Simulated scan of single mutants.
Amino acid sequence: MIRLGLLMVVTLVGVFMTLDRFGQGDLRTGHRPVPAPTSAATDAGAPSLTAPAAGTLPATPPVDIIPAASQTPERTQRFPGPPLEPSPEYAGATPEPAQAVPADAPVLYVTADRVNMRAGAGTNNPVVASLTGGSAVQALGATGGEWVQVQTEGGQQGFVAAQFLTADAP
């Protein structure tokens, strides 16, 4: 164990002595030419910028300026893929029409900061949308139970816990 420690110390001393002897200065400066200072515009191929004499600038801009909107190419989908087809288990079925909202459906407002609207009555159903506080929804069913079937202004339908809904406008 002592030999290993001694070997590590001797190796580190040797590395430091080598770096001290040969590590002086910047060794790369002797191998590369130092270019004359130039501006970034000159490096990019632009002519050198100097102050023009008084009165030499044209009063109107050049006419060959093209608006950026006409230079932007139109986006096209290059690989559209095959057309969509219904899955085999629903091949002959037609989608159910959305439930019509009754004309006398009460408008309810969300009382919490954020409420989940679910696909069914109960927390074990997936979340369909998230409603923010003060959002107006129309009740599609009875409003006296624990869950109320509602429809948003955007037409999404789902269930919201009745404790988070009120008929009083915010």
Rank of each mutant, 00 (worst) to 15 (best):
L7Q: 00
G23C: 07
H31M: 08
P95V: 05
D26F: 08
M117S: 09
G23K: 08
R118L: 07
F79Y: 10
R75W: 13
V150D: 08
F22L: 07
Q77N: 09
T111A: 13
P126Q: 12
G144L: 09
T42E: 13
S87M: 14
L4H: 05
V128D: 06
D168Q: 06
A139D: 11
D104V: 03
A119R: 12
D26N: 08
T38H: 07
Q156M: 14
R21H: 11
R114K: 15
A136Q: 11
H31Y: 06
L84F: 08
P86C: 01
Q156P: 02
A136L: 11
A121P: 13
Q163V: 14
L108H: 14
L4M: 09
P126D: 12
S87E: 15
D43Y: 14
G158D: 02
F16P: 11
T111D: 09
F164G: 01
F164A: 03
D43S: 12
Q71E: 05
G5Q: 10
A51S: 13
A98V: 11
G158V: 04
V10G: 06
P80H: 06
Q138E: 11
R75S: 11
L108R: 15
L7N: 09
V127W: 07
V15K: 01
P82C: 00
V137F: 06
Q24C: 01
S70W: 09
R28T: 08
P52W: 01
V101W: 03
V10F: 03
G154T: 13
L140V: 04
A161S: 12
P35L: 06
P62E: 10
V110M: 12
A51M: 14
M1K: 03
P67G: 09
A93I: 02
V115W: 15
A93T: 13
G30L: 07
R114C: 05
R3A: 06
G55L: 00
A41K: 03
V115M: 13
A59P: 14
Q71A: 08
A121S: 04
P170D: 07
Q99A: 13
P106D: 12
P86K: 11
V107F: 15
R114E: 12
M17H: 07
P88S: 14
V137N: 09
P58R: 02
A103N: 15
R28E: 01
Q149S: 12
